[in-house]
Design a protein around this nucleic acid. Structure first.
Lengths: 261, 261
DNA sequence: CACCTTATTTGACTTAGGTCAATAAGTATT
DNA sequence: AATACTTATTGACCTAAGTCAAATAAGGTG
């Protein structure tokens, strides 16, 4: 809870061995094609790398930051996953998003310099912390960094619009199908299996995100399984009929763009 | 429908008289504090102004662009309002957002250079068109433009997160209350009345946006009126009890941040 | 002005999904 | 390993919201 405050970050970082650090540099990171260094030269990537903090892995329940904290920088998940949530006035946790490796966190805090959500780790997770003031200085030196940051912001806007589309679709089946397909395609673009993956979030967290009761999520999973659309065993999911799921959950921007009138 | 295609933009523009054009320049625009020129010098603002296209007003049903169109630039509403929507696979119109004066449209298309939604005008509306390639060139000359563009992108991400929070809140009352409060605060920050305004969108459009049936939206309006929370007559809305509405719809990021635990 | 079309409201009925409660299957703790 | 604790599933029941249908109101058009 308090373990990411103040100087602790530096102490975490110093625990990492030099060899491990080398493996984690931007230059050798497998997520580079999704991340900030897109289009940057070796030398530029090195400059970016030099401002990035890499802490020791976070553990389930740890927080990257909390709702209301002063904005320091953006985070990129390198492994694991996190949830972004806020506490509503009834004291309930409302989940606004999940982030997977290669995804940027904290972009919404740039404009007012305050994190509007808390971000907690769902499983053992590594993340890069990119101090924003330094990032901003670098952008004036490195045009492609500037460009890529803007593209990533734009992509985030796009993803959020898609999420709005999913949430406005009424049925529980549509929402869950869209959610699973979203995870699937995100895993795929990270060269992970698009058909078989582990849900790092609980049913309760999925329910909160999709705006349903836990029981509804659970029942919908069961129904999908009965219908042969997927196999589910607790956190382990295997999608058996992507097309049928897409038919259900196809109420999204991207899929509708392909079937554009 | 086809009236914004190709050279038509220029012919529209040329119809504007020189005096009218002067009134519409960025330098004298009342929306400047919300828009791109924030933090820019007089000379820089003039440069920005010179790349902006201002067309003759659009009329209800006109499109700024359509889903699938190649990305040309971003638009800023200067008066009136528009809806952003896509057509789902059942051929239904799904509304993803409404935009008011001072709000930027098309930010989600920067990253892949394709508009993912159609944007149609809800009432007589004026908009500035900012060609993106020229805007991008200007950003390298004008650091504060760069910065402001990023802030606006960040703000858009933030707004979208808020929308996700609203849509994940279950009840029709919560959603409609949040929607009305969102409009209210947006009007307020544009120095318009926060308590009394005109809905430029139809009940059907509100329903589509909030993911409800039209009848539900209509009934919820009626219930709010019975409870004395507002007065509504067709498009005309007068909020009578903002606090009570906020209690209902307070499931949002910003309001929860104030009542932060 | 009369007619037509479209938007909104309201009522009656139905259903998807919420709530409550019990059970089962994992996980963590001692 | 036994215990307690948490998470997920399933059933029974109920309510909010969807659907269908009709009435009303507003706007548009010849």
């Amino acid at each position: 809870m308090a373990d990411i405050k103040q100087g602790k970050i530096k102490s975490r970082e110093s625990q990492l061995s030099t060899t491990l650090k080398d493996q984690l540099r931007c230059q050798s990171c497998g997520l580079t094609p999704l991340c900030l260094p897109v289009g940057m030269s070796e030398a530029e990537t090195e400059k970016l790398d030099s401002i990035v903090h890499r802490n020791t892995p976070y553990h389930k329940g740890d927080h990257l930051f909390r709702q209301g904290d002063k904005f320091k920088g953006i985070y990129v998940i390198t492994s694991g996953s996190v949830k972004s949530y806020y506490i509503n006035k009834h004291g309930e946790e409302c989940i606004v998003g999940f982030y997977l490796p290669g995804e940027l966190i904290g972009l919404d805090a740039i404009h007012n310099r305050v994190y509007s959500c808390s971000v907690a780790v769902l499983e053992t997770t590594s993340a890069c912390e990119v101090p924003f003031s330094q990032l901003q200085s670098l952008t004036s030196e490195i045009p492609s960094l500037q460009h890529q940051l803007m593209c990533l912001l734009s992509k985030e806007v796009h993803n959020d619009c898609e999420m709005v589309a999913i949430l406005a679709s009424h049925s529980a089946e549509e929402r869950l199908a869209s959610f699973l397909l979203s995870l699937s395609s995100r895993y795929k673009s990270r060269s992970l299996s698009a058909l078989e993956f582990n849900l790092s979030m609980s049913r309760t967290e999925i329910a909160s995100f999709l705006g349903h009761a836990v029981e509804t999520v659970s029942r919908t999973f069961s129904r999908f399984q009965e219908q042969g659309l997927l196999e589910v065993n607790r956190k382990q999911v295997k999608l058996l009929n992507i097309e049928a799921l897409a038919d259900l959950g196809g109420n999204t921007l991207t899929s509708s763009t392909t079937g554009f009138p």
